[in-house]
Simulated scan of single mutants.
Amino acid sequence: MSEVEVVRVFTCEGAGGNPCPVVAEASAMDAGAMQTVARRYGHESGFVLSPADDAHDFTFRFFVPNHEMEMCAHATIGALWVLARRARLTNAPVRIATASGTVTGFVQKRDDGSWRVEITQPAGRVAPLTSDAVEAVCAALGIGREALADLPLHNAATSRVKTLVPMRLPAGLHALGPDQAAVEAVCRSIGSTGLYPYAIVDGPGRMFEARQFPRSSGYPEDAATGIAAAALAFGLLHDGTIEPDDRPILIHQGRAMGHLSEIRVRIGFAGDRALGCLLGGEVASGADLSITPAGVSA
């Protein structure tokens, strides 16, 4: 029996965040048992396994209710937070093997006893959508082009592809009520794993609001999506919405769900070339979601 610890990742002022079940001793679990955890809790779940080689400290696997994921940023951050609190991090930085490649974790204990956690993501890839694809995305979201800001729609990725949809106003963003079947259909047609509409709150201050409607995770909306936030950072850089420097980009997500989250992204540069980014946020206990899946002790 493997213990499940539920945490909330990317909390904002101690509240909200994205709930994440973490199994810190998952080497004896097979894929079916891992997916059972994700299905019973109804959230993206992270599993910590022994490394397969000397180049890594751990192997992480990730499941949503419907399938396994190559990479999940908030589950990675949550699992590192759990490992740090259990005094299981002996190396710094931490090298993690995932299905999407190696991720490096940076974990630091603050003076107040809390833990600061950041993880790496590679430089983002950004590709504009065709006019027909834009129309299909708007139809899935239930909006017309007049609701969009005067910016391109992109497919962008640091690992999984997300579709960046610039909304003219935050109010329009929070009023969205897309049809889940339409979201899945359009995402499959354009090669995306989710629609990520966003709005500029304070451009010079690098503050944004966003929502995530996944393609087929088993739930209609995500309270915080680190992979999408990283993709958004590179979309913003591509469009010239942010300056090419390493100041933090703050992305608030989950407001419409009542789970306000804050994701921080810092892009790293060599001269004027973006090399990748650091993705981080605060973590808190999520004991309020302590249900007990079959075959697992909570």
Rank of each mutant, 00 (worst) to 15 (best):
F106P: 03
V107I: 13
T98A: 02
P93A: 05
T90I: 05
A92K: 15
W115N: 02
S114P: 00
D111H: 10
R116H: 10
T120Y: 07
V117F: 08
V103R: 05
A92P: 12
N91W: 06
Q108Y: 04
D112S: 08
G113P: 03
G105S: 00
T104H: 09
W115D: 07
S100L: 01
R116E: 10
V103K: 11
T102F: 10
S114W: 06
G101K: 03
K109H: 10
R116N: 12
I96G: 01
F106V: 09
D112A: 10
D111Y: 11
R110F: 10
G113I: 08
Q108C: 10
R110W: 05
V107E: 09
T102V: 13
D112K: 07
A97P: 06
T98F: 01
A97K: 15
T98Y: 08
F106T: 01
F106I: 08
R110Y: 05
R95D: 00
S114Q: 12
T120I: 04
A97Q: 05
S114D: 03
R116P: 05
T120D: 05
V94P: 01
V103F: 03
T102I: 05
T90P: 06
D112R: 08
T102C: 13
T120S: 01
V117S: 03
R116G: 03
R116L: 11
D111L: 14
R110I: 01
V94D: 00
W115L: 11
V94W: 11
W115G: 01
V107P: 04
A92Q: 15
A97L: 04
K109A: 00
W115I: 07
V117R: 12
V103C: 12
T102E: 13
L89Y: 10
V117N: 09
T90K: 11
E118C: 13
T90V: 08
T120K: 09
S100Y: 05
V103A: 02
L89S: 01
V117H: 06
K109R: 14
T104Q: 10
N91D: 13
T120Q: 08
A97T: 09
G101F: 06
G113F: 00
S114C: 11
T104M: 10
G105W: 10
Q108T: 15
I119V: 06
L89T: 04
T104W: 08
A92S: 15
G113N: 03
K109S: 10
T98M: 07
W115A: 00
G113M: 04
K109Q: 05
Q108R: 15
D112Y: 07
V103Q: 02
Q108H: 13
A92G: 03
K109G: 12
P93V: 11
T104V: 06
G101Q: 09
R110G: 14
T120F: 04
E118D: 09
R110L: 11
N91V: 14
I119T: 12
K109W: 13
A92H: 15
E118L: 15
S100Q: 09
D111I: 12
T98Q: 09
F106W: 12
N91H: 14
L89D: 05
D111P: 08
A92M: 09
Q108L: 09
G105A: 04
W115R: 02
V94C: 13
R95G: 14
F106D: 00
A97C: 14
F106A: 08
A99I: 06
T102G: 13
